[in-house]
C-alpha cells in the first residue's frame, strides 16, 4: 500500500478511535430513542400483555375444576405456569428486540438517507453494527429485567425463586448468538428492503420454535430438532431451568451453557459473513442507498 498523496486529514486509526466508533453509534442510538419516550414505556408492558393471554386462559381453565398446575407440572416439570409464561414472553421480547432493533435501524437508515452517509465513512462495519447491536443488547437486557420484575408483581409470581445468578448468566451468554442472528436479519432487510412483513412472520415462527408458551418436548421429533438448532430456545429453557424446576436439555446446566457458547462462537461469525456478502452484492448491483 502506497502512502496517501495529500494526507488523511484528521483520520487517526487506533484502538481508541475504533472504540470511539462503537461507543458513538451506541450513544447515538440511546440519544435517539430517548427522544421517543413512549416507545420505551410500551416495551415494558409488552411481555406482560403477551404473557397475560395464556396465563389468564390457564387460570380460567383451573377455575373449572381441572388441576392446571398438576397437568402443567407433568409436562414441564414446574407447577408455576405463570412464571413459566412470563419467562417465555420476556426472553421472547429479548430475541425480538435484538432482531427488530437491528432490522428497523437498517430500514430507517435506508429510507432517511443516512445509510449512505454511514457507509461512506472509513469505520469498519462490524464496529457500526456492533454499536447498534450493543445498544439493542443493553436495551433488551434492561427491558427483560424490568418487565420480569413488573410482571412478577402483576401476576403474583415469587421473584426470588431458583438460581437468579445462573438465569442472568443464561441470558447474557444467550445474547451472543442473538448478535449473529441480528446480522443475518440485517442482511435480509438489506436484500429485500422491507422489515414489517418479515417481523410479522418471524415473530410467530420464533415464538413457536422458542417454546414461549409450551415446552418444546411436546413438538414432534423433527420440529423439536429445528427448535433445538435455534439458540434462543436454549436460552429460554436455561432461564426456566435456573429459576423453576424445569429440566435442562442435557440434564446439567454446564452442558446447556456449553451448547449456547458453541452457538455464540458460530452464529456471530456466520451472521457477519452473510451480512458482508449481502452488502457486497448490494454494492455490485444497486448500491446501499436504494430502498
Amino acid at each position: 500500500m502506497a502512502g496517501p498523496i495529500a494526507g488523511l486529514g484528521y483520520y487517526e486509526k487506533s484502538a481508541r478511535t475504533s472504540f470511539g466508533v462503537f461507543s458513538s453509534v451506541l450513544k447515538a442510538r440511546f440519544r435517539i430513542v430517548s427522544r421517543y419516550k413512549g416507545a420505551l414505556l410500551m416495551e415494558l408492558f409488552m411481555p406482560i400483555v403477551f404473557a397475560a393471554l395464556p396465563i389468564l386462559l390457564g387460570v380460567s381453565i383451573a377455575s373449572g375444576g381441572v388441576d392446571v398446575g398438576q397437568n402443567w407440572k407433568d409436562t414441564t416439570g414446574t407447577a408455576d405456569f405463570k412464571a413459566y409464561m412470563l419467562i417465555g414472553s420476556s426472553t421472547f421480547m429479548v430475541v425480538m428486540l435484538m432482531t427488530w432493533l437491528v432490522g428497523f435501524w437498517l430500514r430507517r437508515e435506508m429510507v432517511s438517507g443516512t445509510l449512505e452517509s454511514v457507509w461512506v465513512s472509513p469505520a469498519k462495519k462490524y464496529l457500526i453494527i456492533g454499536g447498534v447491536t450493543g445498544y439493542a443488547l443493553i436495551r433488551a437486557f434492561v427491558a427483560f429485567v424490568l418487565s420480569f420484575v413488573l410482571g412478577s408483581f402483576v401476576f403474583g409470581i415469587n421473584l426470588f425463586q431458583g438460581n437468579m445468578l445462573m438465569a442472568a448468566m443464561f441470558i447474557l451468554v444467550g445474547l451472543l448468538p442473538l448478535w449473529g442472528i441480528s446480522f443475518m436479519f440485517g442482511a435480509l432487510i438489506l436484500r429485500i428492503k422491507e422489515a414489517d412483513s418479515i417481523i410479522n412472520l418471524l415473530q410467530w415462527v420464533l415464538s413457536f420454535f422458542m417454546g414461549v408458551f409450551f415446552p418444546i418436548t411436546v413438538l414432534p421429533g423433527f420440529l423439536r430438532l429445528i427448535a433445538q438448532s435455534f439458540p434462543p430456545t436454549w436460552m429460554t429453557n436455561g432461564v426456566r431451568a435456573a429459576l423453576l424446576d424445569v429440566s435442562f436439555f442435557f440434564e446439567t446446566w454446564y452442558l446447556d451453557l456449553a451448547m449456547i457458547l458453541v452457538f455464540a462462537a458460530v452464529f456471530p461469525l456466520m451472521g457477519y459473513g452473510i451480512f458482508i456478502a449481502t452488502e457486497r452484492r448490494m454494492k455490485k448491483t444497486q448500491g446501499m442507498g436504494m430502498y
Binding site: Y10, G113, S117
Partner: peptide, 29 residues
C-alpha cells in the same frame, strides 16, 4: 462527502451531535 444533501443527517440529533457522531465514524479523536 456531501452526497445526500439534508437527507444524510439524523433529524432527532442536534447538529453538534450529528457532527460528533460522523467525526467518530471517521476516526477523528
Amino acid at each position: 462527502c456531501m452526497l445526500m444533501g439534508e437527507r444524510g443527517l439524523y433529524w432527532k440529533l442536534t447538529g453538534r451531535e450529528n457532527l460528533d457522531y460522523f467525526g467518530a465514524l471517521y476516526h477523528v479523536p
